[in-house]
Design a protein around this nucleic acid. Structure first.
Length: 288
DNA sequence: AAAGAGTACAACCGCCACCCT
DNA sequence: CAGGGTGGCGGTTGTACTCTT
């Protein structure tokens, strides 16, 4: 295959794999420092390395290149990653251009190992950046189909037997009560989230599902999460007319959020518009 | 102290787009 | 235009380290 010249050479046992030794690093660093990067395929031979060009390039870009930051991501960097991921998705290389000193690989790893879990804990689907919410209909709990997809997406439920969701009469999806609920808890447990913990999203939702004075609970101290949650919540409520939940003070709550943080409805609307337009034309997103 | 589980990060793999012949 | 070479990207795997029991 084109681009896989490494593989044929590996079969001949000429190409070393695995972690780089300090000696190899030194050879590569000295070579690039002295001669610069010409053709990566010729670099290993000229630098005296038994690696493929691709491997050398990766080592240079992700580890040896001057100017790389080391250490944990700052809160500001995390915010930027989350925001950009919300806008452009898994385009790590593009996101990396907005974080000087960080590599796409580093950002990708950080996202997969930390940020994803952080968002899930906040009750936000890391794929869609929308809140993971469950609407209800007393004992027959209904999940609006869109949200069911979000849930499946967030918790990989599509791989979990397949028929955990059942279509209900009104086009929504019926929670197979205990079965489903325990699956959700199981999934949370698997994700390291204590289903009974104070910050557990699904457990709270389960309480709502059982119609114990359902009321929206938003953490106003987390402005982004609240905003996202509220936005989707209102949309979901407006299209789920059969829901037994009846939040007449929806507008009031929304106003509270706008009042609480520095954002206002217009700014939020603007972001939604930008997001919508970027869905169709991601390559033209103004990256700076 | 040892074994197993969990986590973070480095590196690899396969695919794709672009360029050159 | 077709085909091969190359670099770049995102997903995935491997490995070393840390934590828990």
């Amino acid at each position: 295959m084109a681009g896989d010249t490494c593989h044929s050479k590996q079969k001949e046992n000429k190409i070393k794999k695995g972690l780089w030794s300090p000696e190899e690093d030194e050879k590569l660093f000295n070579y690039i420092n002295r001669f610069g990067v010409g053709s990566w395929t010729s670099v290993p031979h000229l630098a005296g390395l038994e690696r493929c060009g691709k491997s050398c390039r990766l080592r240079w870009v992700n580890y040896l290149r001057p100017g790389l930051k080391r250490g944990s991501f700052s809160q500001q960097e995390q915010d930027i990653i989350i925001h950009l991921h919300q806008l452009i998705g898994n385009r790590w290389a593009q996101i990396a251009t907005k974080l000087p000193g960080r590599t796409d690989n580093e950002i990708k790893n950080f996202w997969n190992s930390s940020l994803k879990k952080k968002l899930i804990k906040q009750g936000i689907n890391p794929n869609t950046h929308k809140p993971i919410l469950v609407s209800n209909e007393c004992n027959k709990s209904i999940i609006p189909s869109g949200m069911a997809v979000e849930l499946q997406d967030a918790f990989h439920m599509s791989n979990n037997g397949g028929d955990a969701f059942h279509m209900s009469n009104n086009g929504g999806l019926t929670f197979a009560d205990n079965f489903m609920t325990s699956n959700l808890f199981l999934d949370e447990s698997e994700m390291g989230i204590d289903p009974m913990g104070y910050d557990c999203n699904l457990f709270t939702q389960h309480q709502h599902i059982n119609c114990e004075a359902p009321s929206p609970s938003f953490d106003f101290s987390d402005t982004l999460a609240s905003r996202t949650m509220m936005d989707t919540f209102i949309k979901a409520e407006s299209r789920e007319s059969s829901s037994c939940t009846n939040y007449s003070n929806m507008n009031h709550l929304y106003a509270e959020i706008c009042k609480y943080d520095e954002w206002n409805a217009c700014e939020w609307q603007e972001l939604q518009t930008v997001q919508a337009s970027n869905v169709g034309d991601l390559d033209t997103y103004p990256m700076g």
